[in-house]
Design a protein around this nucleic acid. Structure first.
Length: 311
DNA sequence: TAGTGCTGCATACCTCCTTT
DNA sequence: AAAGGAGGTATGCAGCACTA
């Protein structure tokens, strides 16, 4: 009898697949030191940079955000009942744009386009479009009733923003919300265009959430620094797990910097906290040094090498 | 004049980004 | 498994315009 041909020719099934090591943030500059009271251990933990343009932190944050949004919206949709409509009509994607040439600044520091002749800088535009979204949201909630929302800012080619907003809830089911949004956004606030994606566009909540968040890791480098890139109704994105302060006791946190050679040359604790545990300082210093050396060896990041004085 | 709806503002609370 | 600051969200209230 012939042996059955395995379809798993690249040995990708769990039986063969090797466990992949979790990628580490290449921009780590901070550490925290904490005591695990349950296991009676002290740990030094690198803190990732959590920036959207980081190749490791960006995708990780995106996964977390998507997961939290999916759970929240799926839960909301479970309880939505509108007579004569299927549940999927309770999700709508709204696109709100910044007005055209008459409001843009030709001397923008990003990608200037000569045809724009307005006065607003990109920073102005971000502030203004979010302020108007705040007004629009408040007005709509007053008119339609409660709905939940998740908004994400996306830069256009020249850095000026537009907003994608996911509206979720029974009160956004009627088609008639579009003219009202247009009246406010275009006519009253003097903003750009409005687009309301038909609900059939999305297969399900996952599709909608994935679509709206896809730009978070793609284009943040085209945006000015320090801007909020997304937002949501209260409690929608609330973290479900936080470390138990009774178990994990923070001892210190700090940062390290690199010298001219690119090697780590300086470690500085910037906060120290009272701890019930007395730690021998020599032992602590040794542990900290070992930890950096271990990081450098493990992840082959020369900038993490530490010159540590054993004396 | 009273009622209604809209709007802006103040405030409390909460989340995200930057910094050390 | 950070803290602090900036700024977003939610809510109530006062002032204004409009209407019956």
């Amino acid at each position: 009898m012939r042996e059955a041909l395995s379809l798993d020719c690249i040995k990708n099934n769990s039986k063969f697949r090797q466990k992949r090591e979790k990628p580490k943030c290449p921009n780590t500059r901070n550490y925290v030191e904490y005591a695990d009271m349950d296991n009676k251990r002290v740990k030094f933990v690198p803190v990732s940079c959590k920036q959207w343009h980081c190749p490791v932190c960006g995708p990780r944050r995106l996964r977390e955000l998507r997961s939290r949004a999916r759970k929240a919206f799926t839960n909301i949709l479970k309880h939505v009942e509108v007579k004569g409509f299927r549940k999927k009509y309770a999700i709508k994607m709204l696109t709100l744009t910044w007005p055209g040439r008459d409001r843009r600044n030709p001397s923008s520091s990003l990608i200037p386009r000569p045809e724009y002749c307005g006065e607003d800088t990109i920073e102005d535009a971000h502030r203004e479009i979010k302020r108007n979204w705040n007004r629009l949201r408040t007005a709509l909630k007053g008119k339609l009733g409660w709905f939940d929302q998740l908004w994400v800012v996306e830069p256009q080619q020249d850095g000026y923003p537009h907003l994608h907003v996911l509206l979720v809830g029974k009160n956004v089911v009627p088609k008639s919300i579009l003219p009202e949004i247009r009246r406010l956004w275009c006519d009253k606030y003097g903003m750009g265009n409005v687009d309301l994606k038909p609900t059939r566009y999305f297969n399900d909540v996952n599709h909608a959430v994935n679509y709206i968040t896809k730009y978070l890791t793609k284009a943040p480098s085209r945006l000015p620094k320090g801007l909020r890139l997304f937002g949501a109704s209260k409690y929608i994105l609330e973290k479900t797990w936080r470390p138990d302060p009774n178990r994990f006791q923070l001892i210190s946190r700090g940062f390290f910097s690199t010298g001219a050679s690119g090697n780590v040359s300086h470690i500085e604790p910037i906060w120290s906290f009272k701890s019930e545990i007395e730690i021998d300082l020599q032992q602590k210093a040794k542990k900290l040094g070992d930890w950096f050396l271990e990081q450098a060896r493990k992840y082959r990041q020369p900038k993490l090498w530490l010159s540590w004085d054993e004396g």
